[in-house]
Simulated scan of single mutants.
Amino acid sequence: MDVKQFDVVTLFPPMFEAISQFGITRRAGEEGRYQLHLWNPRDFTDDNYRTIDDRPYGGGPGMVMLADPMEKAVQAAKQRQLANGVEKPKVIYMSPQGRHLTHAVVMELVSQSGLIFLAGRYEGVDERLVRRQVDDEISIGDYVLSGGELAAMVVIDAIVRQLPGVLGDADSAEQDSFVNGLLDYPHYTRPEIYQGEPVPEVLMSGNHAHIKKWRLKQALGRTWLRRPDLLAARQLTKEESGLLAAFQADHKQEQDADK
Rank of each mutant, 00 (worst) to 15 (best):
L225Q: 14
P200W: 04
H37D: 14
L129N: 07
I138A: 06
E17D: 14
A28N: 05
A158G: 12
P191N: 08
V202F: 06
Q81P: 00
V130W: 05
E108Y: 02
V155M: 06
M94A: 10
Y93T: 14
Q97L: 10
T102S: 15
S139C: 05
D176C: 10
E137C: 09
N180W: 01
T102N: 08
S172G: 14
K217A: 14
A209E: 15
I24K: 03
V134L: 06
A67T: 05
T45K: 01
A104G: 12
A232I: 00
A257M: 07
G29Q: 03
G206S: 12
L236Q: 07
K252C: 10
D136P: 01
Q81D: 08
R55D: 12
D47G: 03
L182W: 00
D47N: 06
T237H: 04
V105F: 00
Q81F: 04
G59Y: 00
D258I: 10
T45V: 05
R33D: 09
F12Y: 14
K90S: 13
T223I: 04
N207M: 00
V199A: 06
Y34K: 02
I138N: 08
I52Y: 08
E240L: 04
I19C: 06
I140Y: 02
D136L: 15
D184T: 09
I138E: 07
Y57T: 09
M94V: 12
S95A: 11
E30V: 05
L109T: 10
